[in-house]
Structures are given as C-alpha cells and as structure tokens.
C-alpha cells in the first residue's frame, strides 16, 4: 500500500482515480451494497403501491386511468434519462482527468435534474388542485405520494449532493480524495433513474392501461 502519496494532489492521477485508494475502493463497494439495500426499500414501496392502487375505501377519489396524463410523464422521463447520459459524460471526462469538462457536464446534469423536480412539483400540484388527490384523502393517495415522493426526495438529495461536491471542489480540481465521491454520486444518480424507469412503467403506464 502506498501510504505516502498525497491524496489531495491533482498531479499524476492514475487510471481510474475513483478506485486507486483503499478508501475509494471501500466507498465504491459500500455504495453498491447500499444500492442493493435501496432496491428492497423501493420494492416495499412498490408493493404497497400495487396493493393500494385504486383503493379508496369509503372515500371519493379519481382512478388512475382518469388521473394520469402521459405527455408530462414522457417529458419527465426523457429529461431524467438524458441527465443519466450527461452524468456518464461527466464520469467519462473524470476518467480522462479533465476536471473542467466534468464540471460542465455535472452542471448540465443538475439543471436537468432540477427541471425534472420542478415538473414533478407541478404535477403533484395539479393532482391536488384539479382532482383533490392528496396524501391524506385515501389509501391510494397515500401510497402514490409515498412512492413517487420518496423518489422525488431521492432526486432532491442527489441534486444537493452533486451541488455540494461541485462547490466544494471547484477550486481544487480532481484528486484521489474526491474522485471516489464524484463517482458514487454519479452511481446514485443512475440508480435514481433505474427507479424512475419502474415508476413510469408501473405507476403511470400500467395505471393508464388500468
């Protein structure tokens, strides 16, 4: 183990700087394992949603077929998928040790993520005001907002995380200490996209079909 290297220096970066140190390797593995756990977390929410979908009890409510529209969800999906690609570009430049270009692509990712979040807020607002579809109005509402809201909270957290990393490291450049941090933040961002793929399929598309 090379303990004497200065992990804060931007010189002489190795190939794959994100996995060059033991700390980096640990972070990389640990974060993947965390994502394995997140899979079960979202599965519990998906299961709850599927069990309570269109379940209103004695309360009034709008069923999924009437509630959901496809246009907005399609736009949101394309935005989030694109942001996944832009974060791949960021990691591509990180591997080539091109810090500036990495920051540019991360910034694009953040902008796309923020516009996704904005659209989601607009969508929720629309449901609440047009259909009276709220978190407390019936079990379907609770389950819907719990699942989609949990995903939205993940997006918001991801945005804050990437922004914090960008501001933090703007002046210091890429080094062995922060490369793993950028890398796992991008993994997290991809995972958010994975979850969204299932949300638009299971919640919106299957909801529209009935």
């Amino acid at each position: 183990m090379s303990t004497h290297e200065d992990v804060l220096s931007s010189e002489n970066l190795p190939h794959e700087p994100e996995k060059a140190t033991l700390e980096g390797k640990n972070k990389f593995l640990g974060f993947w394992f965390f994502l394995g756990g997140e899979t079960v977390l979202f599965a519990s929410l998906f299961g709850t949603y599927l069990a309570l979908r269109n379940s209103f009890g004695n309360a009034e409510g709008t069923p999924t077929q009437e509630l959901f529209g496809l246009e907005l969800v399609f736009i949101m999906t394309v935005i989030l998928l694109t942001s996944s690609l832009t974060s791949v570009y960021a990691m591509y430049h990180m591997k080539n040790h091109d810090f500036k270009k990495m920051m540019v692509w991360l910034a694009i990712t953040v902008i796309l993520g923020a516009s996704f979040l904005g659209l989601e807020v607009y969508e929720f607002n629309h449901y609440v005001h047009e259909y009276g579809h709220t978190f407390t109005s019936h079990a379907f509402g609770s389950a819907f907002y719990a699942l989609v809201g949990f995903h939205g909270a993940h997006v918001a957290f991801g945005l804050c995380w990437i922004l914090a990393l960008m501001f933090r490291n703007a002046k210091r450049g890429l080094n062995l200490y922060n490369a793993p941090k950028f890398y796992i933040a991008s993994l997290y961002w991809h995972f958010i996209d994975v979850v969204w793929v299932f949300i638009f399929t299971v919640v919106y598309l299957m909801g529209k079909v009935g």
Binding site: A51, S55, G57, N58, F135, T136, H138, A139, S142
Partner: peptide, 17 residues
C-alpha cells in the same frame, strides 16, 4: 405517516390494508 401525518395505509375505511 399514518399516525402523525394523516395517511391511510392501514385504515381500511379509507382503502388501506
């Protein structure tokens, strides 16, 4: 959520289970 935020996951009357 059910106890403190008025959700209805486990309230059969409101469609919960």
């Amino acid at each position: 959520f059910d106890r403190l935020f008025g959700a209805n996951f486990f309230v059969p009357d409101m469609g919960g289970n």
